[in-house]
Write a protein that binds this DNA or RNA. Structure first.
Lengths: 139, 139
DNA sequence: CTGTTTGCAAACTATTTGCAATAAA
DNA sequence: TTTATTGCAAATAGTTTGCAAACAG
């Protein structure tokens, strides 16, 4: 999802636009999968006097309106990304970077048909972990 | 993995056995997928004067020796279980209970072949979420 | 104007750490 | 006896909350 698209949807949903919200959106796009704190640190470089609370509030708001996805991975720290088409994440255990990956075939939804009866599936989260190409070279 | 099997492996690996460690192991078996704190609360009912730190230390030790798996799901709180054969987890968004599920076909490892080249995969975590049979009935 | 959003600071929760006292082998 | 483990209390990290001041619509 592009920055413009998110900003447009803000208005369409009747939400107030503030400089802080615009900046958070722009940084999310630039940074990929930042944590709230990583985003906060970048934000105050260009726009001092922003608070942690505002970053969290904005991320929460964006998430509630389906414009942002919260990633909850094994480091127990939330990462955030602008909402995208279905895809998976690969976390490098060495450099900790998160990479977007195409969702695998044959696609998880079909896989779920094998689940026990009576369970209503809303979705799933998947985190694949290992070593990224850069770190593989170095080691 | 059975309680006895874990306790046996403790000795085999040259680790010291303590009452606390035995109790943590037994409770893990009984409780399924407790958080450290849930385990701690149950523990002090029967065995007062146990500390939080000991529970965390024991879980960490068991994990390092492959006897326990740490689950990092969307609630950002670690849950623990005795190590088992590959399986997936289903979290009910209503009652928050975690259910074990057979790993789906065709199995994730094969799915990974579609990932980009150069990434070395060690493993994956998956959390399926939705509504469990009990909560589906009530709603 | 009116109600929402902001910044601040304090509160909270899960987890980790330092260390003297204790217990396993 | 020797070394690892325990319990406690304080520290830490990420996130949330309460509230008066500032601002978007």
């Amino acid at each position: 999802m592009s920055v413009e698209s998110v900003l447009r949807q803000f208005k369409e949903k009747g939400l107030r636009m503030t400089p802080q919200r615009a900046h958070v959106t722009k940084l999310l796009y630039e940074m990929g999968h930042p944590t709230a704190d990583q985003l906060y640190c970048r934000l105050i470089e260009r726009y001092p006097y922003v608070s942690h609370a505002t970053v969290y509030n904005t991320l929460k708001l964006l998430k509630e309106h389906g414009l942002v996805t919260e990633l909850t991975h094994s480091d127990r720290v939330s990462h955030y990304e602008l909402a995208q088409a279905e895809h998976w994440h690969f976390t490098c255990k060495s450099c900790k970077e998160i990479f977007d990956m195409e969702a695998g075939e044959p696609g998880l939804p079909r896989v779920f048909s094998s689940l026990q009866e009576g369970f209503v599936v809303d979705g799933y989260r998947i985190e694949i972990y290992g070593t990224c190409p850069n770190c593989s070279k170095v080691l």
